[in-house]
Amino acid sequence: MIEARKLTRHFGNFIAVDNVSFTVGKGETLVLIGPSGCGKTTTLKMLNKLVLPTHGSVWVDGQDANTLEVEELRRNMGYVIQNVGLFPHYNVAENIAVVPRLLKWEASEINQRVEELLLQVGLPPNQYTHKYPDQLSGGQQQRVGIARALAARPPILLMDEPFGALDPLTRQQLRRDFMELEALKATTIVMVTHDIEEAFEMGTHIAILNKGSIQQLAPPRELLTHPANEFVKTFIADQAERLELRALKLKDVFYQLNLEMPAQGTILKMDASAALLHAIYILGKQTNHSISVSMNGEIRYADRSQLFELFKNGLG
């Protein structure tokens, strides 16, 4: 859990961040979004002290971050940035192993962890461990960047436009692969993006910032249904319809799903709070699969074509 209390940052006379507070619980994802210069990145960097707040404080699991050594604080927070920032003189395995090494893990433990992470981010270890960053594509680099951030199993993950430098296709794919990562189910994530679709797809909560202060902090749907002010309304207005679809969760269509269990194929369990779109994506990758969703003690099932129909209905 991470908490920002009245974070404020001045650069000379300019107030970059003004009195920002939020709490992100375990397993939750808070997305910070807003126009350029709204203070979203500065806010993120105050969480791991790359930028020091002028006023206010950060609390991690109920502890004031000021009482922690800055390196210790950071080693407990994964950090992923837009330009990846892999060490060009280290190979993939060495890059991922940086933090475990700093923490003096056993070599065998490190190797095991590197392999495990490479598998999770979809880079077969036998092909990639010994490659250097300049031998990887942008998407592959960011996969390594994510693996590096997760290496020491940090309870918190900070991401600054992690998919921002990628082409749209790679970006969507990486984003969805990322959401599937098992390691992240219990991780607290704070992410900055300028892509509102991404925010709606990934955030359990979204904070819309303007001129350094939070305009509204709410779950995605609520931003659509109850925008707090004119700014929020105009900020999402252009794309409101599409966003609504992205904000569509399985629980919103739960009672339209099947009661009978499919006779054959594998059944994947999914959380009711998962996005409908995400479920379609997963099933698109695994043919002959269906999902099961449980809500209020009831279990329902669906296959891909059924979910797709529901999604299309949402368009209408």
Partner: peptide, 27 residues
Amino acid sequence: VPSAVKEAALGIGLSNQQLLKKVELPL
């Protein structure tokens, strides 16, 4: 040394000395 590399290094918890020794000087 690319600023992204330095930012990432500090962000994942290298101290200033480790940044110099492991990243900046080798590069």
